[in-house]
């Protein structure tokens, strides 16, 4: 009895509010969303715990024996029970390499999107809140940047850096470069969406109230308006991580990303592609399937979030 009264008086806890929300309700009914989240969490765990799960360390040359190269997975003839997914062209255990590769791919995807989000949110808030000349300048800038596809910009920038630094130094910096390039190239996605929702929020009374109280613009932007634009941010973030992972894989496939000694899923596929004609399909196909299902569940989650939260996303 007492408890009941308390919940009426006190504002419900964040957890309680989450359980009551439309989001959670829809999640309990959507099998696809549940499955996708489950798979995504599994990927997250695989990436996080890679050093513990992986039977071998693919970065340690002492554990690699070239004599083990191109062993087929355990269900094919001529396999070695020590490597259940087979080995790649350098004799690395494919399962361990995929675990570490997933880790690299996810890390790059998440960091790049975090960078995009930070740049995009700050610019979007500024443009939307200030309006006027700042707005038109920043948005024109975003237009121009968007009109050059991310892939194009990334390929050109990375190619030029590779040619300047030389391959060896470049390979050491590859991860940072990938994060920077993918992160910087895609900020307009965030900026436009945030700006659109800021424009809608700005007209509301709570913003006027905050201004009348005398709060400074940054405080109103970040503490008051930003929390109300979270649902579009959430929706684009899922899709953007998926895109960033694809972009990373594509760049690595071109040889502009992670080196073969420290492969992401993309560079693993790239190194396997050379052997696909000689019949060693598993070096390409298995990491490829891992990559596709990772991106697929993220896109499915993004679609589900978009349907549930139904934010006004910037179109076009």
């Amino acid at each position: 009895m007492n408890d009941h009264v308390q919940t009426l008086d006190a504002p419900p806890s964040a957890w309680q509010r989450f359980l009551d929300s439309h989001l959670w309700h829809s999640f309990t009914r959507d099998r696809v969303a549940q499955f996708s989240l489950l798979v995504f969490v599994a990927y997250g765990l695989m990436a996080l715990l890679a050093p513990l799960i992986a039977p071998y360390n693919p970065y340690d040359p002492a554990q690699i024996d070239i004599l083990n190269a191109e062993m087929p997975p355990s269900w094919e003839a001529g396999s070695d029970p020590a490597f259940w997914l087979g080995t790649d062209a350098q004799g690395r255990d494919l399962w361990s390499t995929i675990l570490y590769g997933t880790r690299v791919s996810l890390a790059i995807g998440l960091c790049a999107v975090a960078l995009q989000a930070v740049i995009g949110i700050v610019i979007g808030l500024l443009a939307g809140y200030r309006g006027g000349r700042v707005d038109s300048l920043l948005m024109r800038f975003a237009d121009v940047q968007l009109s050059f596809s991310t892939m194009m910009v990334a390929i050109v920038v990375l190619a030029v850096f590779q040619a300047t630094f030389g391959t060896e130094l470049y390979q050491e910096l590859a991860m940072v470069m990938l994060i920077l390039v993918i992160g910087i190239a895609e900020w307009p996605q965030y900026a436009r969406t945030i700006r659109a929702s800021v424009l809608a929020e700005k007209k509301k009374e709570y913003v006027d109230a905050a201004r009348v109280i005398g709060f400074k613009a940054p405080r109103i932007m970040f503490r008051h308006i930003l929390p109300n634009t979270l649902s579009p941010i959430l929706v684009i973030s899922t899709v953007q991580v998926a895109n960033a992972i694809i972009a990373e894989a594509s760049l690595s496939f071109l040889g502009l990303g992670m080196p073969v000694s420290e492969p992401s899923l993309g560079s693993l596929i790239s190194s396997g592609f050379e052997y696909i004609f000689s019949g060693s399909w598993w070096i390409t196909v298995i990491p490829g399937a891992v990559l596709i299902s990772l991106v697929l569940v993220m896109n499915l989650l993004g679609d589900w979030l978009r349907d549930v939260l139904n934010p006004k996303l910037y179109k076009g």
């Binding site: 894989a249 592609f273 390409t284 990559l291 991106v295 697929l296 993220m298 499915l300």
Partner: peptide, 22 residues
């Protein structure tokens, strides 16, 4: 279409080569 979005273009290309050429 959602599967299509999730498959990187180079994997589609490799898949097509593997199936139709090899």
């Amino acid at each position: 279409s959602i599967i299509g979005i999730s498959v990187p273009v180079f994997l589609t290309a490799i898949g097509l080569i593997y199936l139709f050429s090899i």
